[in-house]
Amino acid sequence: MAENIYQKYESALQALEHGAPLPETAGAVRTPPEGSPAHPSVAALVERFGDAVLDWELVAGDEHVVFVRPERAQEMLRWLKEDPSQRYLFLSDLTAVDYGGGRPLQVVYQLWSLEHRRQLRVKAELALASLEIDSAVPVWHTADWLEREVYDLFGIRFRGHPDLRRIMMPENYAEGHPLRKDFPLRGRFSRAEQTRRALTMETEDFYTPQEMVFMEEAEPVPPPANEGSASLMDQPPGPGVGG
């Protein structure tokens, strides 16, 4: 039993390394099972975008997951945010999942509509050979750092991202993207090499010239309140003071 699992995993790794054909993901949208809670956004998405919605899934009772075509993901997310009947103004999380075995990586958008009090999870599957998807930064600004994190740890490139670089691992990190299933737990280099590389890094490297300029141009700290002519001591006491 255990041997079979290892063999299966080994063959999946082999397939991953040698570029075996990827499983076909496109399929007909499943209809919700009888008696399950309906989600108005899912129906609206299917109606408007048709076959760009690949699949629909209900997990943990009432969490609706919509699988969409990655090339149309940005357009659909923009519609979900801006359409008056949806208004998913809050992107509460953007992350990715690697289930291993050469399966495609999933980019996950967790949305929350404050107006309609609805949650929706949107997933886009990317084949390992082509890890690219349109950035969600034009839609939600908060996607900026989240996409940098996904790029850093999974190696997914976001087209149109304003500043796509590592955010967690050091800038000079050369071992790849650590949250991928094909990444060894202890890293690709020996500990001595990891230590050597870490210590050759200049800590200032973490800042881009733009960030340094931003720090220089930041407004100076205002002077303390008890300095200057209009000090607090000169003000007449409020109604609650000195009574």
Binding site: P170, T200, T203
Partner: peptide
Amino acid sequence: PYKMAPVIRR
């Protein structure tokens, strides 16, 4: 973490 290694060394 390795990212902090040059910091503590400095």
